[in-house]
Design a protein around this nucleic acid. Structure first.
Lengths: 227, 227
DNA sequence: CAGTTTCGGAACTGTTGAGTTTCAGAACGT
DNA sequence: ACGTTCTGAAACTCAACAGTTCCGAAACTG
């Protein structure tokens, strides 16, 4: 590879800009076959899949094209470079179980935390972690990419935990002076480490031991005796 | 790159085998200039440096050779491939502040944990983390490399923490039923996450907040009022 | 010393993959 | 219908890099 620049002024919003017709001034109203933008998300999804399996350097444009049954040229018509394709691909992973609406609200901190442990969440989280693994060495060199990764993967997860802690403080369940900043990072950090470094699987028992062995004791709560 | 195999039966012990003269049977006692093995560690150190700065895919043999003021051919005379060089380089990072002898023993868990926060330790840890970042996406594909990384970086750190907890249990400072396995991963995990993903610096205040905000509360201890 | 093997440096080979171009055919506007 | 612009597929260019080979000088053995 060598010095991947990621320099250009962001790709990112291929989706959000639905080809404004713009009859403002003398626009000739383009002729001919139209670009099929409905396939963009499909292609980006393929890029994410390849990225998760191969990492940034292992991923080739041809792999993505082949998986999407598209031509390499088609990809280059839509994204200026591999870097921009990847940035867009990462950005489109955003949607997960972190929509502020659909979060659990069980009335206890433990209940909320445990309610987030769903097979689908785990699977989704592991995939995101795999993508992050393959991007890890680039994060330092590309602020663009780091931002995209942050917005799509890191931030949402941290915000959810933070909300749970703040609600628990509001209802007086845990002390107001506990270190929410650090505590809300415990679970994302330790699942990431377990996946990326230890290469162990993140399963329900592990997540429960995080909650009952670290997080709850740290805020002065105890796990229920019967598990 | 593409399918880096790392298949060969370990490089690893270029250092440990000091070219046994072996006058056992009919050895012709090799002629000519001798290979200068005193430079091996120096070269491996250069490899580690490049690895930390560029990652596996960004690192080229020529970079390492140039930094070590050696010829590319010399490197290939000593290591069969880039992969083997990297495995050896990682293995030679082992030595750190984790020698079982020189560990602190202050009489309290907090004392021991805080005593490990030294500028040199932090620096050393960050470099190892950087190397690991650049290797992250390969770890899944190369058991050889994963083993080397584990032995040189991950294990030593986990063992130190584990020892501190066990001593604290032995002297009755913390309950015997606390989750040592998980707790001893808290600090390595969270420093790794902070470095690799969050790209924030691991400084003393952060490490103190880990100890006083998470680990100590989780085992039922309190930080001293005055910090 | 003569023969052998190392050394660093430079010139080589071969492959891989980013990005481009070409093309026949499909889908659109008029 | 007819020209335009899209499409996937394949053939290209070009640079980087792993790994090899060759060189003249240095260092060792006998």
């Amino acid at each position: 590879m060598r010095i991947v620049q990621f320099e250009r002024g962001s790709a990112a919003m291929t989706l959000a800009e639905p080809e404004a017709p713009s009859h403002t001034s003398a626009e000739p109203t383009k002729l001919g076959r139209k670009r099929d933008h409905t396939r963009d998300p499909e292609i980006l999804q393929c890029a994410v899949d390849v990225l998760a399996e191969e990492g940034y350097d292992g991923m080739t444009i041809e792999m993505v094209a082949a998986r999407a049954k598209a031509g390499k040229a088609t990809l280059y018509r839509r994204w200026a470079s591999k870097s921009e394709l990847v940035i867009d691909a990462v950005a489109c992973m955003k949607k997960g179980d972190t929509d502020p609406r659909k979060l659990p609200d069980t009335g206890t901190l433990r209940g909320d935390l445990v309610a987030m442990i769903k097979p689908h969440s785990i699977e989704d989280g592991e995939k995101k972690l795999k993508v992050m693994t393959g991007l890890a060495s680039l994060l330092a060199r590309s602020p663009e990419l780091a931002d995209a990764v942050n917005a799509a993967i890191v931030d949402p997860r941290a915000k959810v935990n933070r909300l749970f802690f703040e609600r628990a403080i509001a209802r007086g369940e845990i002390p107001a002076d506990c270190d929410v900043d650090t505590l809300s990072m415990v679970s994302p950090s330790m699942t990431a480490y377990r996946t990326l470094i230890l290469k162990k699987s993140v399963d329900r028992p592990f997540l429960i031991s995080l909650i009952d062995g670290v997080i709850l004791p740290a805020v002065g709560l105890r796990a229920p005796a019967a598990v």
